[in-house]
Simulated scan of single mutants.
Amino acid sequence: MTLHVITDGKRSDDELVSILCSIYTYVDLIHVREKNRSAQEIYQLVERLIHGGIPPKKIFINDRVDVAHTLGVGGVQLAYHSLGVSDVRRSFPGLQVGKSVHSYQEAVEAEQDGASFLLYGHVYSTKSKEGLKPRGMEELSTIASTISIPVIAIGGITPDKTAELKGIGIKGIAVMSGIMSAKDPVEVAITYQTSWRQEGLDGHKL
Protein backbone atom coordinates (compact mmCIF):
# COMPACT_ATOMS: atom_id res chain seq x y z
CA MET A 1 0.00 0.00 0.00
CA THR A 2 1.18 3.49 -0.71
CA LEU A 3 0.05 6.55 1.23
CA HIS A 4 0.11 9.81 -0.73
CA VAL A 5 -0.32 13.15 1.02
CA ILE A 6 -1.40 16.16 -1.02
CA THR A 7 -0.93 19.77 -0.01
CA ASP A 8 -4.11 21.84 0.13
CA GLY A 9 -2.97 25.26 -1.05
CA LYS A 10 -3.93 26.84 2.29
CA ARG A 11 -0.62 26.91 4.14
CA SER A 12 2.30 29.29 4.29
CA ASP A 13 5.71 28.05 3.23
CA ASP A 14 6.77 27.73 6.86
CA GLU A 15 3.68 25.69 7.72
CA LEU A 16 4.17 23.38 4.73
CA VAL A 17 7.84 22.81 5.49
CA SER A 18 7.03 22.09 9.14
CA ILE A 19 4.22 19.62 8.38
CA LEU A 20 5.83 17.83 5.45
CA CYS A 21 9.26 17.50 7.01
CA SER A 22 7.64 15.97 10.10
CA ILE A 23 5.57 13.36 8.23
CA TYR A 24 7.67 12.37 5.24
CA THR A 25 8.98 9.18 6.83
CA TYR A 26 5.40 8.01 7.38
CA VAL A 27 4.12 8.60 3.83
CA ASP A 28 5.24 7.26 0.47
CA LEU A 29 4.71 10.26 -1.79
CA ILE A 30 4.20 13.97 -1.20
CA HIS A 31 2.24 15.87 -3.84
CA VAL A 32 2.97 19.59 -3.91
CA ARG A 33 -0.37 20.88 -5.22
CA GLU A 34 -0.17 24.67 -4.95
CA LYS A 35 -2.33 26.06 -7.75
CA ASN A 36 -2.00 29.69 -6.69
CA ARG A 37 1.78 29.78 -6.54
CA SER A 38 4.09 30.72 -9.36
CA ALA A 39 6.70 28.35 -10.75
CA GLN A 40 9.39 30.26 -8.85
CA GLU A 41 7.44 30.05 -5.58
CA ILE A 42 6.93 26.30 -5.98
CA TYR A 43 10.61 25.88 -6.85
CA GLN A 44 11.68 27.72 -3.70
CA LEU A 45 9.23 25.76 -1.55
CA VAL A 46 10.39 22.39 -2.86
CA GLU A 47 14.02 23.43 -2.40
CA ARG A 48 13.25 24.02 1.27
CA LEU A 49 11.58 20.61 1.53
CA ILE A 50 14.63 18.92 0.04
CA HIS A 51 16.99 20.87 2.30
CA GLY A 52 14.75 19.79 5.19
CA GLY A 53 15.60 16.18 4.50
CA ILE A 54 12.79 14.97 2.25
CA PRO A 55 14.20 12.72 -0.48
CA PRO A 56 13.57 14.38 -3.87
CA LYS A 57 12.21 11.11 -5.32
CA LYS A 58 9.42 11.22 -2.74
CA ILE A 59 8.15 14.55 -4.08
CA PHE A 60 5.70 14.94 -6.95
CA ILE A 61 4.74 18.38 -8.25
CA ASN A 62 1.29 18.96 -9.63
CA ASP A 63 1.15 20.22 -13.22
CA ARG A 64 4.51 22.04 -13.26
CA VAL A 65 6.66 19.69 -15.32
CA ASP A 66 9.31 22.39 -15.68
CA VAL A 67 9.81 22.70 -11.94
CA ALA A 68 9.76 18.94 -11.40
CA HIS A 69 12.39 18.39 -14.08
CA THR A 70 14.62 21.24 -12.94
CA LEU A 71 14.66 20.05 -9.33
CA GLY A 72 15.05 16.38 -10.20
CA VAL A 73 12.14 15.25 -8.06
CA GLY A 74 10.32 11.94 -8.42
CA GLY A 75 7.67 13.04 -10.82
CA VAL A 76 4.73 15.16 -11.81
CA GLN A 77 0.99 14.75 -11.25
CA LEU A 78 -1.07 15.76 -14.27
CA ALA A 79 -4.66 17.04 -14.24
CA TYR A 80 -7.19 17.25 -17.07
CA HIS A 81 -5.81 20.67 -18.10
CA SER A 82 -2.16 19.63 -17.98
CA LEU A 83 0.13 18.51 -20.78
CA GLY A 84 -0.61 15.04 -22.08
CA VAL A 85 0.98 12.03 -20.40
CA SER A 86 2.65 10.83 -23.59
CA ASP A 87 4.07 14.30 -24.32
CA VAL A 88 5.60 14.52 -20.85
CA ARG A 89 6.95 10.98 -21.09
CA ARG A 90 8.60 11.73 -24.42
CA SER A 91 10.17 15.02 -23.33
CA PHE A 92 11.00 14.14 -19.73
CA PRO A 93 11.76 10.39 -19.60
CA GLY A 94 13.33 10.69 -16.16
CA LEU A 95 10.05 11.65 -14.48
CA GLN A 96 7.34 9.36 -13.25
CA VAL A 97 3.96 10.65 -14.38
CA GLY A 98 0.84 10.37 -12.28
CA LYS A 99 -2.51 11.18 -13.86
CA SER A 100 -5.72 12.28 -12.13
CA VAL A 101 -8.78 10.60 -13.65
CA HIS A 102 -12.50 10.67 -13.00
CA SER A 103 -13.86 7.88 -15.18
CA TYR A 104 -13.06 4.44 -16.54
CA GLN A 105 -12.43 5.82 -20.02
CA GLU A 106 -9.98 8.42 -18.71
CA ALA A 107 -8.19 5.67 -16.79
CA VAL A 108 -7.82 3.49 -19.89
CA GLU A 109 -6.50 6.42 -21.93
CA ALA A 110 -4.01 7.39 -19.21
CA GLU A 111 -2.67 3.85 -19.04
CA GLN A 112 -2.33 3.69 -22.82
CA ASP A 113 -0.49 7.01 -22.81
CA GLY A 114 2.09 5.68 -20.36
CA ALA A 115 1.02 6.98 -16.94
CA SER A 116 2.96 5.56 -13.98
CA PHE A 117 -0.12 5.49 -11.75
CA LEU A 118 -3.62 6.95 -11.48
CA LEU A 119 -5.38 9.03 -8.86
CA TYR A 120 -9.12 8.31 -9.02
CA GLY A 121 -11.77 10.25 -7.15
CA HIS A 122 -13.39 11.66 -5.37
CA VAL A 123 -14.55 8.39 -3.84
CA TYR A 124 -16.35 9.72 -0.76
CA SER A 125 -17.90 13.08 0.12
CA THR A 126 -15.27 15.65 0.94
CA LYS A 127 -15.26 19.31 1.93
CA SER A 128 -12.84 20.09 -0.90
CA LYS A 129 -15.54 18.99 -3.38
CA GLU A 130 -18.64 20.34 -1.66
CA GLY A 131 -21.79 20.05 -3.75
CA LEU A 132 -20.29 17.40 -6.04
CA LYS A 133 -21.60 13.85 -5.80
CA PRO A 134 -18.90 11.35 -4.82
CA ARG A 135 -18.06 8.74 -7.44
CA GLY A 136 -18.24 5.84 -5.02
CA MET A 137 -16.71 2.40 -5.15
CA GLU A 138 -18.22 0.70 -8.19
CA GLU A 139 -16.24 2.39 -10.95
CA LEU A 140 -13.12 2.43 -8.78
CA SER A 141 -13.38 -1.33 -8.39
CA THR A 142 -13.81 -1.79 -12.15
CA ILE A 143 -10.77 0.37 -12.89
CA ALA A 144 -8.61 -1.36 -10.29
CA SER A 145 -9.49 -4.80 -11.63
CA THR A 146 -8.80 -3.99 -15.29
CA ILE A 147 -5.96 -1.45 -15.23
CA SER A 148 -2.43 -2.83 -14.86
CA ILE A 149 -0.82 0.30 -13.40
CA PRO A 150 -1.34 1.25 -9.73
CA VAL A 151 -4.67 2.91 -8.92
CA ILE A 152 -4.74 5.28 -5.95
CA ALA A 153 -8.07 6.29 -4.40
CA ILE A 154 -8.63 9.89 -3.29
CA GLY A 155 -11.43 11.90 -1.75
CA GLY A 156 -12.88 11.79 1.76
CA ILE A 157 -10.86 8.74 2.81
CA THR A 158 -10.65 8.49 6.60
CA PRO A 159 -8.75 5.70 8.40
CA ASP A 160 -11.99 3.83 9.12
CA LYS A 161 -12.79 3.74 5.38
CA THR A 162 -9.81 1.49 4.64
CA ALA A 163 -11.84 -1.60 5.54
CA GLU A 164 -14.32 -0.77 2.80
CA LEU A 165 -11.49 -0.39 0.30
CA LYS A 166 -10.06 -3.79 1.16
CA GLY A 167 -9.70 -6.29 -1.62
CA ILE A 168 -10.76 -4.24 -4.65
CA GLY A 169 -7.24 -4.06 -6.02
CA ILE A 170 -6.24 -0.46 -5.41
CA LYS A 171 -2.59 0.09 -4.54
CA GLY A 172 -2.94 3.03 -2.20
CA ILE A 173 -4.83 6.05 -0.93
CA ALA A 174 -4.26 9.79 -1.20
CA VAL A 175 -5.16 12.16 1.61
CA MET A 176 -5.30 15.95 1.70
CA SER A 177 -7.16 17.65 4.55
CA GLY A 178 -7.25 14.48 6.67
CA ILE A 179 -3.52 14.93 7.26
CA MET A 180 -2.79 18.55 6.32
CA SER A 181 -5.50 19.95 8.63
CA ALA A 182 -4.90 17.53 11.50
CA LYS A 183 -3.79 18.82 14.89
CA ASP A 184 -1.09 16.13 14.86
CA PRO A 185 -0.26 15.24 11.24
CA VAL A 186 2.33 12.65 12.28
CA GLU A 187 -0.12 10.76 14.47
CA VAL A 188 -2.77 10.77 11.74
CA ALA A 189 -0.33 9.63 9.05
CA ILE A 190 0.69 6.71 11.26
CA THR A 191 -2.99 5.91 11.86
CA TYR A 192 -3.65 5.71 8.10
CA GLN A 193 -0.67 3.39 7.59
CA THR A 194 -1.61 1.21 10.55
CA SER A 195 -5.28 0.88 9.65
CA TRP A 196 -4.43 -0.07 6.07
CA ARG A 197 -1.94 -2.74 7.12
CA GLN A 198 -4.40 -4.16 9.64
CA GLU A 199 -6.87 -4.65 6.83
CA GLY A 200 -4.37 -7.00 5.20
CA LEU A 201 -3.99 -5.15 1.92
CA ASP A 202 -1.04 -5.91 -0.30
CA GLY A 203 1.99 -3.67 -0.07
CA HIS A 204 3.08 -2.01 -3.29
CA LYS A 205 5.92 0.36 -3.96
CA LEU A 206 5.89 2.59 -6.99
Rank of each mutant, 00 (worst) to 15 (best):
D87Y: 14
E138K: 09
M1L: 03
K171N: 15
H4C: 06
D202K: 13
D87H: 10
A153H: 14
V27R: 02
T7V: 11
R33K: 12
N36F: 12
I173N: 08
R48V: 01
T7C: 01
L71A: 04
G75A: 01
R37W: 15
A68P: 13
G136A: 10
L95E: 06
H81L: 10
I19C: 11
K161G: 02
G156W: 14
I54Y: 01
K58Y: 01
R64N: 12
A189I: 10
P185C: 06
A144R: 00
S195T: 15
T70W: 02
G203S: 15
L132C: 01
W196T: 12
H122P: 12
K133L: 09
F92I: 05
I190H: 08
H204A: 10
V88G: 05
P150V: 02
S125R: 12
E199M: 06
Q44L: 14
I59A: 03
S91W: 09
V108A: 04
S125V: 06
V188Y: 04
L71I: 13
T25I: 00
N36H: 14
T146K: 12
F117G: 08
S177L: 02
V88Q: 04
L83M: 15
I170R: 03
A174Q: 08
A107C: 08
Y43D: 08
E130R: 06
E111T: 03
Y43M: 08
G9K: 01
R197L: 13
T162P: 05
D87R: 13
G114V: 01
Q112A: 10
I19N: 01
I179C: 03
Y80A: 13
Q112V: 08
A144H: 01
G72N: 00
R90N: 10
T194A: 07
S86V: 09
H69I: 03
P56N: 00
I143L: 05
V97I: 15
V151N: 01
L201E: 14
S116N: 08
D8L: 04
T194L: 07
G136W: 13
K161I: 05
G121E: 07
G200R: 05
H81Q: 11
K10V: 13
G84M: 03
D63G: 02
R11T: 13
E34Y: 11
V101A: 09
S181F: 05
V97N: 04
E47F: 05
N62D: 12
T158E: 11
I149K: 03
A163E: 14
K171M: 09
